[in-house]
Nucleic acid binder design. Structure first.
Length: 930
RNA sequence: GCCCGGAUGGUGGAAUUGGUAGACACGUUGGACUUAAAAUCCAAUGGACAGUAAUGUCCGUGCGGGUUCAAGUCCCGCUCCGGGUACCA
C-alpha cells in the first residue's frame, strides 16, 4: 500500500490532467482563426461514426499521431487547423431505432456525447468550435446544396470539366446534341436544334437526365433485401453487404446516380500529385480499371441487328470463331432460333435465379448455343453466338469475341463445349492452354501476319476504324455511383416530383427529415420516408417529395471544407476561407476507405473546383493510413456435451469447444474461476480440470478487437490508472504508425516510469519543484540539442515511435548528469509538450511562465553543441570489428592510417601478413583489408 | 492467379544516404533499501564455445546465391505471413 504522503509526493497525473483540460477549455486555447501573417497547416483525422460501443484503444491511435503533429506545427509557428466532428448518419443507429423505437437523433446525441467525453479525456487540441455533424440540418443543408449543383451541371469533354447545365441547354437550342462534347448515357439518341425546340418540358427533362451529373435512371442495382436498400459497389464484399453480411442481388430500379465515370481519367491522373501510399493509389487505379481497346461491330446472319464487342486484343481477331453474350444481353430474345429457344430460356432463367454471390462462387463452365450466327468482319466466316455466365452484363458491351487460342477463359469455354480452337500464333502450342504472351508472332491473320502484339494492335485498330466496323474505345470498370438509399437516417433529397419528372428545390429551400411512425418500409415496399404525410414535410412541392435518402458517404465527401467555415449560413464555405486553408496537408485515417470515401471526396472536390467554388481539385495532399490495433483474446475449452472446462495445457485427448472468455477475468492467461462462474448463469455450476500448478490456463490469439470477442480494451481504464499523457506516449511507443500491431499493456509501465523519472529530475524528495539557475554543462547542451534534432526530424517524417525513445534517452542522460538546469528543462518541456501536453503545461507553469506551452516556440537546434573533438573509431579487419580507438576528429585520412598501423593490436590481427588496403571513412569506420 | 506490404533477441521494436546490428522499453535473473511487500535504485541479459578472471574465438537480421574493402540495407532466385483484388474480355 502506498501511503497518502507518497502519492502526494509523486507525479499526480490525474490532478494535473484535469487542471489543464479545464484551463484549455476555459481559455479557448485551441481556438483558431485565419491569420494572413502566418503560414497555414491543416491536419485532419477521418471523423468517426459515433457508434453505441464507444471508443476502444485502437481508435485514438491516429488521433494521437495527428494531434502530436498539429501541436508540433503550432510550436513551429504555423497557424494550424485541427478540427473534429462526427459522421453521424448511418445504418447501425437506424437499426437500433427500428429495434427500440428511439429516434436516431436521440441515440446519435447520446453517442456523440460519449465520444466527446472519451476524446476530451485524451487531451486533443481540437478546435471544437468548428465541430460538424453530418446529420445536423445546418450541415446537410449544404450537402443538399452540393447535390443541387451536381444536378444542375454536366461534364464537358472539350474543356474537360463540369459546367452549368444551362450552357448545355443553350447549346441544344442552337445546335441540338449531334456535335455535343458533353458526357452522357450511351444510348442517348440524337436530335437537332429544331427537334429540341419541339420537345415538351418532360421530354426535355428526360434528355437532360442523360447529361446531368446527378441523375435518375432505370439501372441494374445491387439490391440488399436484408437491409432493405440498394448499395453501391464499394459497399459489397464477396457478394454480401459490407454491413450486416446480407446477400445482394441484381434488380432493375429507378435510382439517383452520380456521374463519377465522367471523372475517371482525372481521378487516375490526379493520383500522381498525391503523397499517399502506393497501395491505396493502386487500389484506386484498379477500382477505376481503365483499359484501352476497341469496340468492334459484328453483323448477324439473317438479321439486320449487330453485336458490339469490346476487346483489348484486336490483334487476335482472326482467332475468333464464336461470340459469347452475357445472359442479360438484350439481343438474346431476338436472335435465338426456334429449335434453341427452350434451352436458352431455361439457361437464362437459371442464371437469373442465382444470386451475385453464387455466380461469383461458381467457377464451373456453363453456357448455351443460341442457334444464331454472326459474320466475321474480316474473314466473312460464320461465327456461332453463345450465351455464357462468364461474360458480365455490366462490363464493356456485355458481349465478347471469343479467341480460344489467346484467352484462357475462352479456351476453357471452347474446350468444354468442343468448339474449334484456331491457332494464330507461330510455333506456339495451344492444345494445353491459351497463349496470353504478347511477344509472339501472329500468323493465319491476313494483314496482321508476321507482326507481334504491339504493332498488330495498332494496325488492327487502324483497319477497324478505316473499315467503319468499330472504333478505339477506353473502357472503365468504374460504374456511376448509385446515390439513393431506401432508408430513414440519411440526408433527404431536395427533390420533388411532378408526375414522373424530378425537380430540385430552389436554392433557398432545404428539406429536413420528416417524422415517421416507424423506421421501416411501407407495406408497398416504399422507403420509410414514404410514411410521412404531406404535413410532416417542412417543404412539400409538386405531387410528391423524393422518399429516398442519400448514402452514408454524401456528408463525408466534403466535411473537410465545412470545418473551414462551419457557421456560415449563406454559403457551404466562403471562398476566401477555402483559399486560406486550402488542401488538407496531413490526413490520417484507416485504409479501409480506399475506394469509398477517398474516391468520392476526390470526385466532389474536383467538381466543386470545376464550378469555381473552391480553388484546388484534390482534397488530401498527404495521407497516412494508421495500422489497426489488434486485441488479444482469451479462450476456455469446454469438453463436448458437458459443463466441464479443461485447462489449455491439459486438453489433449478431450473433444472440446473453444469459447471466448472476457479478458477482464484473465490475468497472464490464468483464469479467475470465481469471476468466470459469476459471468453467466450457465457457468455457475461449471467444473474445471486444472493443470499441475492448480491453475486454469486459457488459450490466446491475436484478433480484431470486438465486443463479441470480449477482448476490447478501452482507453478510460488506462487513463484512470496511468493518465492520458502516458496513454498518448504508449500508443506511439508501440511501433510504426502504419503497422498492424497487437495491443499489449505490458510495456505501459515503461513509459509511465519515464514521466515519473522526468518529474523526479526537477523535484526534491519533498516534491518541491527545483531547477538550477546555473549554466548547463557542455554535456547537457549536447544531450538537449541531440534531442531537439532528433525530435524535429523524426516528427517531420512521421516516425512517432522513435521520438519517445529520444525523450527517454534525454531524461536518462540528464538524470545521470544530475542536470536540472532551467534552460535545459525549459527547452525539453516544449519538446515533450506535443506528446504529453498535460505534464508539459504543469512544468511550464512551475518554470514561471504565465502563458500556455502550446504557444511556446520550438527550441532551435544548434549544430555546434554536437561537434565532437574526438571520434571513437571501430577498427575492422576484413570487415570484422576487432577493437576501437579514439582519434582527434580533425585528423586526415593519412594520419589516421598511420595511427592505426602504430596501434599495438593491429600487429596482432595482421598476424604477420601485410595490409593490402586501408579504408578510412572519416568519422565512421576504419577497415583494414588483409 | 495477379498487385502491394512484411519477416531483426524471450517480447514490442531501433539502425534516415551500404559503415560499430539489437538503441529505447518490456520481461527475466541477481543485488541494495524494507519486519515484509509495493515502489525506487544498481548490475547482468542475442546464441555457442574456451578461460578462475580480465578477455578471447566462432555463429548470428526467414532461406539459397551474388555484388562490395564492408550488406539487416543493393541485385537474382525461393519460403512463409499479412493486406488488396479477381471470370474486367
Amino acid at each position: 500500500m502506498q501511503t497518502k504522503k507518497n502519492i502526494l509526493m509523486e507525479y499526480n497525473f490525474s490532478e494535473i490532467e484535469e487542471k489543464w483540460r479545464r484551463y484549455w477549455r476555459e481559455n479557448q486555447i485551441y481556438h483558431v482563426k485565419e491569420d494572413e501573417t502566418k503560414d497555414k497547416f491543416y491536419v485532419l483525422d477521418m471523423f468517426p461514426y459515433p457508434s453505441g460501443a464507444g471508443l476502444h484503444v485502437g481508435h485514438p491511435l491516429g488521433y494521437i499521431a495527428s494531434d502530436i503533429y498539429a501541436r508540433f506545427k503550432r510550436l513551429k509557428g504555423y497557424n494550424v487547423l485541427h478540427p473534429m466532428g462526427y459522421d453521424s448518419f448511418g445504418l447501425p443507429t437506424e437499426q437500433y431505432a427500428i429495434q427500440t423505437g428511439i429516434h436516431p437523433e436521440v441515440a446519435t446525441k447520446d453517442n456523440t456525447e460519449r465520444y466527446r467525453k472519451q476524446l476530451d479525456q485524451i487531451g486533443f487540441s481540437y478546435d471544437w468550435s468548428r465541430e460538424v455533424q453530418t446529420s445536423d440540418p445546418y450541415y446537410y443543408k449544404w450537402t443538399q446544396w452540393i447535390f443541387k449543383q451536381l444536378f444542375n451541371s454536366y461534364y464537358c469533354r472539350k474543356e474537360d470539366k463540369a459546367k452549368p447545365i444551362l450552357d448545355l441547354i443553350s447549346f441544344f437550342e442552337k445546335k441540338g446534341n449531334i456535335n455535343s462534347q458533353a458526357v452522357c448515357d450511351e444510348e442517348t439518341s440524337l436530335f437537332t436544334e429544331s427537334d429540341w425546340k419541339s420537345f415538351n418540358e418532360k421530354e426535355k427533362e428526360d434528355i437532360l437526365q442523360k447529361y446531368r451529373l446527378a441523375f435518375l435512371s432505370e439501372t441494374w442495382v445491387n439490391w440488399c433485401e436484408g437491409l432493405g436498400t440498394v448499395l453501391a459497389n464499394d459497399e459489397i464484399k464477396d457478394g454480401l453487404s459490407e454491413r450486416g453480411g446480407f446477400p445482394v442481388e441484381q434488380k432493375l430500379m429507378k435510382q439517383w446516380s452520380l456521374r463519377i465515370t465522367a471523372y475517371a481519367d482525372r481521378l487516375i491522373s490526379g493520383l500522381e500529385t498525391l503523397d499517399w501510399s502506393d497501395s491505396i493509389k493502386e487500389i484506386q487505379k484498379n477500382w477505376i480499371g481503365r483499359s484501352n481497346g476497341v469496340s468492334v461491330r459484328f453483323n448477324l446472319q439473317n438479321s439486320d441487328k449487330t453485336i458490339d464487342v469490346f476487346t483489348t486484343r484486336p490483334d487476335t481477331i482472326f482467332g475468333v470463331n464464336f461470340i459469347v453474350l452475357a445472359p442479360e444481353h438484350e439481343l438474346i430474345d431476338v436472335i435465338t432460333t426456334e429449335d434453341q429457344k427452350q434451352n436458352v430460356v431455361e439457361y437464362v432463367n437459371n442464371t437469373k435465379l442465382k444470386s451475385e454471390r453464387e455466380r461469383q462462387a461458381d467457377k464451373s463452365i456453363s453456357g448455351v448455343f443460341t442457334g444464331a450466327y454472326a459474320i466475321h468482319p474480316f474473314t466473312k466466316e460464320k461465327v456461332q453466338i453463345w450465351i455464357g455466365e462468364y461474360v458480365l452484363a455490366t462490363y464493356g458491351t456485355g458481349a465478347v469475341m471469343a479467341v480460344p487460342c489467346g484467352d484462357q477463359r475462352d479456351w476453357d469455354f471452347a474446350t468444354h463445349f468442343g468448339l474449334d480452337i484456331i491457332n494464330i500464333f507461330e510455333n506456339i502450342d495451344v492444345s494445353e492452354k491459351a497463349n496470353q504472351e504478347k511477344d509472339v508472332v501472329i500468323v493465319n491473320s491476313g494483314f496482321l501476319n508476321g507482326l507481334k502484339a504491339k504493332k498488330a494492335i495498332n494496325l488492327a485498330i487502324h483497319k477497324i476504324e478505316e473499315e467503319g466496323i468499330g472504333r478505339a474505345k477506353t473502357n472503365y470498370r468504374l460504374r456511376d455511383a448509385i446515390f439513393s438509399r431506401q432508408r430513414y437516417w440519411g440526408e433527404p433529397f431536395p427533390v420533388y416530383y411532378k408526375g414522373d419528372t424530378a425537380y430540385v428545390l430552389d436554392d433557398d429551400k432545404q428539406v429536413t427529415l420528416p417524422q415517421v411512425d416507424k423506421y421501416l418500409p411501407t407495406s408497398k415496399g416504399d422507403p420509410p420516408l414514404a410514411r410521412a404525410r404531406k404535413e410532416d414535410w417542412n417543404v412539400f412541392q409538386g405531387d410528391r417529395m423524393e422518399t429516398n435518402v442519400m448514402p452514408g458517404w454524401a456528408g463525408s465527401s466534403w466535411y473537410f471544407l465545412r470545418y473551414m467555415d462551419p457557421k456560415n449560413d449563406a454559403e457551404f464555405c466562403a471562398k476566401e476561407k477555402s483559399d486560406y486553408w486550402g488542401q488538407v496537408d496531413l490526413y490520417i485515417g484507416g485504409s479501409e476507405h480506399a475506394v469509398g470515401h477517398l474516391l468520392y471526396s476526390r470526385f466532389w472536390t474536383k467538381f466543386l473546383f470545376d464550378r469555381g467554388f473552391i480553388g484546388f481539385d484534390e482534397p488530401f495532399k498527404k495521407m497516412i493510413n494508421q495500422g489497426m490495433i489488434l486485441g488479444r483474446s482469451n479462450f476456455v475449452y469446454r469438453i463436448k456435451d458437458t459443463n466441464t472446462f479443461v485447462s489449455a495445457d491439459m486438453r489433449a485427448g478431450y473433444k472440446t469447444t473453444r469459447l471466448h472468455v472476457d479478458i477482464n477475468f484473465v490475468d497472464n492467461d490464468i483464469l479467475d474461476i470465481n469471476a468466470f462462474k459469476k459471468w453467466r448463469e450457465e457457468y455457475a455450476n461449471a467444473e474445471f480440470i486444472l493443470n499441475n500448478e492448480g491453475e486454469y490456463l486459457c488459450g490466446s490469439e491475436i484478433e480484431k478487437m470486438s465486443k463479441s470477442k470480449y477482448n476490447v480494451q478501452t482507453p478510460e481504464k488506462l487513463v484512470e490508472k496511468f493518465g492520458a499523457d502516458t496513454l498518448r506516449l504508449y500508443e506511439m511507443f508501440l511501433g510504426p504508425l502504419e503497422q498492424f500491431k497487437p495491443w499489449d499493456t505490458k510495456g505501459i509501465n515503461g513509459v509511465h516510469n519515464f514521466l515519473r523519472k522526468f518529474w523526479r529530475l526537477i523535484h526534491d524528495s519533498d516534491n518541491n519543484f527545483v531547477v538550477s539557475e546555473k549554466k548547463p554543462t557542455k554535456q547537457s547542451y549536447k544531450t538537449l540539442h541531440k534531442t531537439i534534432k532528433k525530435v524535429e526530424e523524426e516528427i517531420e517524417r512521421y516516425s512517432f515511435n522513435t521520438v519517445v525513445s529520444s525523450f527517454m534517452i534525454c531524461v536518462n542522460e540528464l538524470s545521470e548528469q544530475k542536470c536540472n538546469s532551467r534552460e535545459i528543462i525549459s527547452s525539453f518541456t516544449i519538446l515533450l509538450s506535443s506528446y504529453a501536453p498535460h505534464i508539459a503545461e504543469e512544468i511550464w507553469q512551475k518554470l514561471g511562465n504565465d502563458t500556455s506551452v502550446t504557444i511556446a516556440e520550438f527550441p532551435s537546434f544548434n549544430e555546434s553543441y554536437l561537434v565532437e573533438d574526438d571520434v571513437n573509431y571501430p577498427v575492422s579487419f576484413n570487415g570484422k570489428v576487432r577493437f576501437k580507438m579514439t582519434l582527434p576528429a580533425e585528423m586526415t585520412k593519412n594520419q589516421i592510417e598511420q595511427e592505426v598501423m602504430k596501434h599495438e593490436k593491429t600487429a596482432h590481427y595482421l598476424d604477420g601478413k601485410s595490409a593490402k588496403k586501408i579504408i578510412v571513412v572519416p568519422k565512421r569506420i576504419i577497415n583494414i583489408v588483409i
